[in-house]
Amino acid sequence: DVRLAGVKVGTVTGVTLNPETYRADTTLSVASGVEIPDDSAVIVSQEGLLGGNFVEIMPGGSPFFYEEGDEILDTQGSVSLISLLLKFVAGDSGASE
Score class of each variant (00 low, 15 high):
residue 1 D to N: 14
residue 3 R to P: 14
residue 3 R to K: 15
residue 4 L to R: 04
residue 4 L to I: 06
residue 6 G to A: 05
residue 6 G to Q: 08
residue 7 V to Y: 07
residue 9 V to H: 02
residue 10 G to L: 06
residue 10 G to P: 10
residue 10 G to Q: 04
residue 11 T to A: 15
residue 11 T to G: 15
residue 12 V to F: 05
residue 12 V to L: 03
residue 13 T to M: 03
residue 13 T to H: 06
residue 15 V to W: 08
residue 15 V to S: 15
residue 16 T to P: 03
residue 17 L to N: 01
residue 17 L to S: 03
residue 18 N to G: 04
residue 21 T to D: 02
residue 21 T to V: 00
residue 24 A to K: 05
residue 24 A to C: 07
residue 24 A to E: 07
residue 25 D to L: 03
residue 25 D to F: 04
residue 28 L to F: 00
residue 29 S to Y: 04
residue 29 S to R: 00
residue 30 V to E: 07
residue 33 G to H: 09
residue 35 E to H: 02
residue 35 E to A: 12
residue 35 E to N: 13
residue 36 I to F: 02
residue 36 I to R: 04
residue 38 D to P: 01
residue 39 D to A: 04
residue 44 V to D: 09
residue 46 Q to M: 11
residue 46 Q to W: 06
residue 49 L to A: 10
residue 50 L to G: 10
residue 52 G to V: 06
residue 53 N to H: 12
residue 54 F to P: 06
residue 54 F to A: 03
residue 55 V to G: 01
residue 57 I to N: 08
residue 59 P to Q: 12
residue 61 G to E: 15
residue 63 P to C: 06
residue 63 P to L: 09
residue 64 F to H: 10
residue 65 F to G: 00
residue 67 E to P: 07
residue 68 E to G: 06
residue 69 G to C: 05
residue 69 G to K: 00
residue 70 D to V: 02
residue 72 I to C: 00
residue 76 Q to A: 11
residue 76 Q to R: 06
residue 78 S to Y: 08
residue 78 S to H: 12
residue 80 S to D: 14
residue 80 S to C: 14
residue 81 L to P: 07
residue 81 L to Q: 09
residue 81 L to F: 11
residue 81 L to V: 06
residue 82 I to V: 15
residue 82 I to W: 11
residue 85 L to D: 08
residue 88 F to Q: 10
residue 88 F to K: 10
residue 89 V to I: 12
residue 90 A to R: 13
residue 91 G to T: 06
residue 93 S to H: 10
residue 95 A to K: 09
residue 95 A to R: 07
